[in-house]
């Protein structure tokens, strides 16, 4: 099994983006997402694209890696483009059988495509350069104010980090169960759909049974070490903002504002 199976394909590194505080990255990603969604001006798109390109460079993302990120979304992107191209009413450019290509279709189609690409890239930049653990810690910190209104932020963060911790363990276990069941003649990859679904049941039932057993034991192990929900925990790793974080936050903030201004007054 791969060493670092994590959600969102975290790639460890030491680039500028890697070293940013995870809270900065989450906030910046959020600002970029909103900016991309609000943007409707070519100049805005140019600015956003430039910033995204800059971020890719700073994160040392190679073109191959970039392609790897976008490939899984390929079909989805093409489909979205085609639907916009062919089904937007407006001034016709050319006829394709019963369908017609319109000026507006081309405009909105490519705008949508570009939006999606920018969204995917900025989201991926976050997960590529930040370990799930850091994302959890950052969310815990950012959501802290919601504790006041009774949201169990620490407990939710704990649940998330435990879920992440058990991803590799359960994957390994699933592999083992698959092998055990295959050795007794279970069909996971052949036969008709019904048979495959039945095969899946023989995987899921033991997997769930063991997950519950694990959960029970883990709860004991946490209690042994004085874990009390609601009690005041501290953190060994304290998140700290540096100059670079303030710079990045200010930069993305300004960009976001510019996009907004262009939308409503441009």
């Amino acid at each position: 099994m791969q060493g670092n199976i994590t959600l969102g394909f975290y790639v460890p590194g030491q680039s500028f983006i890697h070293r940013l505080d995870p809270r900065t990255k989450i906030l910046a990603c959020l600002a970029m997402t909103m900016a991309v969604l609000f943007c409707n001006h070519p100049a805005g798109f140019a600015a956003l694209s430039l910033v995204t390109l800059l971020a890719l460079g700073l994160a040392r993302v190679t073109p191959q890696l970039l392609l790897g990120i976008l490939r899984p979304f390929g079909i989805f992107l093409v489909l979205a483009l085609l639907l916009q191209l062919l089904f937007t009413p407006g001034r016709p450019l050319m006829m394709l059988g019963p369908l017609q290509l319109t000026r507006e279709g081309v405009h909105f189609g490519f705008q949508l495509l570009w939006r999606l690409v920018l969204l995917i890239i900025s989201g991926s930049l976050l997960t590529l350069t930040t370990s799930p653990l850091m994302i959890t810690a950052a969310l815990e910190d950012l959501l802290k104010p919601f504790r006041r209104v009774g949201v169990p932020v620490f407990e939710l963060a704990m649940m998330m980090s435990i879920a992440l911790r058990f991803v590799p363990t359960l994957l390994e276990e699933a592999q083992q169960i698959i092998r055990a069941q295959q050795s007794r003649g279970a069909a996971f990859t052949r036969g008709r759909l019904v048979q495959r679904v039945q095969g899946l049941v023989t995987l899921l039932v033991p997997l769930f049974a063991s997950a519950f057993r694990r959960a029970d034991e883990l709860a004991t192990a946490m209690e042994i070490r004085c874990y009390r929900p609601g009690a005041n925990r501290t953190r060994m790793h304290q998140l700290r903002f540096h100059c670079r974080d303030y710079a990045v936050l200010a930069g993305t903030g300004v960009l976001f504002l510019i996009v907004l201004v262009m939308r409503w007054w441009g």
Partner: peptide
């Protein structure tokens, strides 16, 4: 302090 039998089920962090 206590240590249980199954090493996989008592580790909390990643």
């Amino acid at each position: 302090g206590m240590v249980l039998q199954n090493p996989d089920n008592q580790l909390v962090a990643s």
